[in-house]
Amino acid sequence: MTLLSGDASMTTTHPAPDPAVQERPPDDVAAARPRFRPGRWLLGAVLLVVGAQLATFLVGNERFEWDVVGEYLFHPTVLQGLGMSVMLTVIAMVVGSALGVVLAAGQLSDFGPVRWASTLYVGVFRGIPPLVQLIFWYNLAFLVPDVSIGIPFGPTFASWSANEVITPLTAALIGLTLHEAAYMAEIVRAGILAVDPGQRDAARAMGFNGRQAFFKVVLPQAMRVIIPPTGSQFISLLKGTSLVSVIAMSDLLHSVQVIYNRTYDVIPMLVVACIWYLTVVTVLSLGQKRLERHFGRGHDRTATVAGGRRRPRLGLAGARA
């Protein structure tokens, strides 16, 4: 009954190895067999049932109208919308990243006003929902009727009506880019801070100037930290382009909406959009993996060229391979 009684049972169930009595070969863990793990079999069975149900639902429910999905998957309007979404994503990402690097450098500057301005920008543009920003930019003409280039508080050289400049396309590009820049600034800043300060010392000690030290030594190492969240950012930006449908920008979502407003095939058309979003996101994820491998080189003691993934094996038996 008492805990202490365990002493006795332990000696009986686990006798000390005694070669004179035992007639089995010496212990060798290499010959061990995996344990039976009932919990894992149960969980596997549950997942199998759920998967089967999901498959039957997708195939069996005729309201998905898979024939309509197939018919419209490569419809010119849909493909144009897809192209627009991808283009918006790429432009906003490229310009936003460049702006983000500048803002990150500004946030890390030792010149106060630059630091404050960058921090203020990031605070404002990260704090306002992108949907609000898009509508705001689209309606810029209410606030600023004329857009002009000139000397501040001095003469202007050229002037345009805001109504002509701010089309759905420019409003979408400005809104997405500025929002993206704020997020990228934080990602780049974190990446730069993650680089060992000794690296900057060494770069300066080798006689590299500030720009060379940043682009040759600091940024390539920061990339290792920057790439994974940037991949997520790229993906959320692609999905974020669906917001521009509210300002009548003909992106992927807007294109399928145009079609289902005419045909009332709401669900099949949304499935078409889902398929395309998932396809592009999958392609982006694969690209991200490649980039991670590229910038991870030199950070692994063993493999530098071979990109073998080392994922712990999670078998049903749970063998320690």
Binding site: Q199, A205, Q221, R297, G298
Partner: peptide, 10 residues
């Protein structure tokens, strides 16, 4: 340097 500070990506 004490910590060598070689550039690990090269």
């Amino acid at each position: 340097f004490q910590q060598f500070n070689l550039f690990p990506h090269w």
